[in-house]
Design a protein around this nucleic acid. Structure first.
Lengths: 352, 352
DNA sequence: TTGTACGCGTTATCAG
DNA sequence: CTGATAACGCGTACAA
């Protein structure tokens, strides 16, 4: 069916090359090779520099690669950290850009990054010891476990590894986006385009389930107040407590009916923005001509689609990088309870 | 701002416990503890069973965890594999469900999973040796590198590790979804709802850049033919070769104008489905009442939003699991060129 | 700067 | 079934 289905050509399996073998070929001892390759010699004198260069060339030619397991043993540390997400099918999510940021910082430190999963059911079952804690393989953990964070924090405290939680707002051991700065950026951007009647739309009424819900909401209201613009164009909770949950589109329809004069809406997330757009077009409100819609999102996912939604990019990449830096401090100082870090939004807003 | 900002309680740092220490406490030798914990003793006689139980209890009490680095050294293999994605900012993507499937299979094997990035720029620059290939840390690689796959294949061949490509269709060393089965499932589903005039919409005209474009398109046409339904309700390439690229929404508008009688549309991906939905609503075509829209997607991302798009779930989870099984065969047989595996779609289609 | 020797924690071998 | 011992590959302290 596809036009691409060539064979992949044969592959040569290489034997593992050790320091010892490089040393033998170079006529020196393994210790010397190790020092040269790790730059622990000053190489002042030209004779030495030449010999060292020779050793490096041989190592390259032979395809020598240090064995990280051996290095870990001798070093007494793994020089590796783990990323932990929940892994529950159809429920797992994490920002890939966040993992990119983590990897970037890990690579700079010459560390390695393990990928781990810890389902909610495992956390809740005290009888199960997950893989992650049955063997020791890393020096610390970056944890992305929003669905069950309160239980998760207790759970990780019982372990002996340092850890950093992502996107959780506590006094210590957390790294999270500063939602107030994001809200401010969003409002400034909208105000700069001349809009006066600005709403906030979210799937739920901001409550305590995740800090970003309340922080974005409050941040928007405060920024509007600073700009002397009317606040609180937002829906209260709808329906009775026991009612079947309303879809986001239904809520969006009510929102648009309630606030007929809106010029712009800042949405809690991209999903709300998409639903609101759909609801608006159905009512004949043309987006973005008649109504400007913004959503907070990991990245600009609408490149070249033409979808009329503007994106406030959440700084997950920077969050990931900062998390590794925090974890590194914990590992190297031995103090596992360092204060949390709040990462500001960039002021730039992506456009379509 | 947030209502949640408690302190995290102090943490006790534990020293590393070795086999030797467990052995000392149990009054046996390290070798014995190792054998007992690894179940290499039959434990026939009750006295032995009791002693073994005692050893296990002590190990648990002391919080003994095998050191994976030491185990790797002794075993001569890392018992770990790497997942490789491109990591380019704003361009990186992989199905999280696929990584879930990989992790599941890795965990069952009691292996570990490393997360690696290999930017296109690194692959193209022969002078750079990336982290991934500067040290040896894994027994094999699962590679997800679509943006540059042709160069990537050559690149990996030069290395000494076994590898499996995801979502690439070649004769060997690949695992990918069987798009024909997915197209058939989609068409069957739509036909079962009584639709007769069925279109196919994609951002680009199906070409060779990725096999799934052509395979989904052909699969749909063949399934339609089997169902004795008119085929080829699809746009040819639009515009001239040098023109600025058209947005997906613009293309969707032309599509709807061209095929006015459609009852259902199967879209190449979820993104096309979203854009088509938007374009349709703008023309007053109510979705899904007047037009049924399906899109292929990693998972049902529209849970509870009310967005009227139906999802054909791509079996990435199964692809990930199959990839690990294939890689395992390579590692254990020493044959790195095993035939590729095509993973069928489930027949179930998610609904909203 | 070099070579030697040892330690890291685990598993495998082998004699008892 | 057990204990002693060697081996895995690397880094490094030590003496030269």
């Amino acid at each position: 069916m596809s036009s691409i289905s060539h064979d992949i050509s044969p592959m040569v399996r290489k034997r593992i090359i050790t320091l010892e073998e490089v040393a033998a070929r170079a006529g020196v001892s393994a210790g010397t090779v190790s020092r040269v390759l790790n730059g622990k010699n000053k190489e002042n004198r030209p004779a030495i520099a030449n010999r060292s260069e020779h050793i490096r060339r041989i190592a390259t030619k032979l395809g020598y690669k240090p064995n990280t397991a051996a290095r870990s043993m001798s070093h007494g540390r793994f020089l590796a950290v783990g990323f932990v997400t929940c892994g529950d099918t159809d429920d797992d999510w994490y920002p890939i850009s966040g993992l990119n940021g983590i990897h970037l910082a890990v690579e700079e430190l010459q560390w390695r990054l393990m990928f781990n999963e810890l389902p909610a059911s495992t956390i809740r079952n005290p009888k199960i010891v997950p893989q992650l804690f049955r063997e020791s393989a890393v020096d610390g953990l970056i944890v992305n476990l929003l669905p069950v964070f309160s239980e998760a924090v207790e759970y990780f405290e019982k372990q002996s590894l340092p850890f950093v939680f992502l996107n959780l707002k506590r006094k210590t051991q957390c790294v999270y986006p500063d939602e107030a700065s994001g809200a401010t950026a969003a409002v400034k951007f909208v105000v700069a385009t001349g809009k006066k009647r600005i709403g906030f739309f979210s799937r739920r009424f901001p409550h305590s389930s995740h800090y970003s819900q309340l922080d974005r909401y409050n941040g928007v209201q405060e920024a509007l107040k600073s700009a002397k613009i009317e606040t609180h164009r937002h829906l209260e909770p709808l329906g009775q407590p026991g009612d079947p949950p309303m879809t986001v589109i239904e809520r969006a329809e009510i929102f648009l009916q309630r606030f007929k004069d809106l010029e712009a809406v800042i949405c809690y997330e991209q999903e709300e923005a998409a639903c609101l757009t759909m609801a608006a077009e159905r009512r004949g409100i043309r987006i973005p001509e008649k109504l400007q819609i913004l959503g907070f999102c990991e990245r600009d996912i609408h490149g070249n689609t033409g979808l009329p939604i503007q994106t406030v990019p959440i700084p997950f990449h920077a969050v990931g990088t900062a998390a590794i830096h925090l974890l590194r401090s914990m590992i190297e100082t031995g103090d596992y309870r360092l204060p949390s870090v709040s990462v500001p939004y960039a002021t730039k807003i992506l456009t379509f």
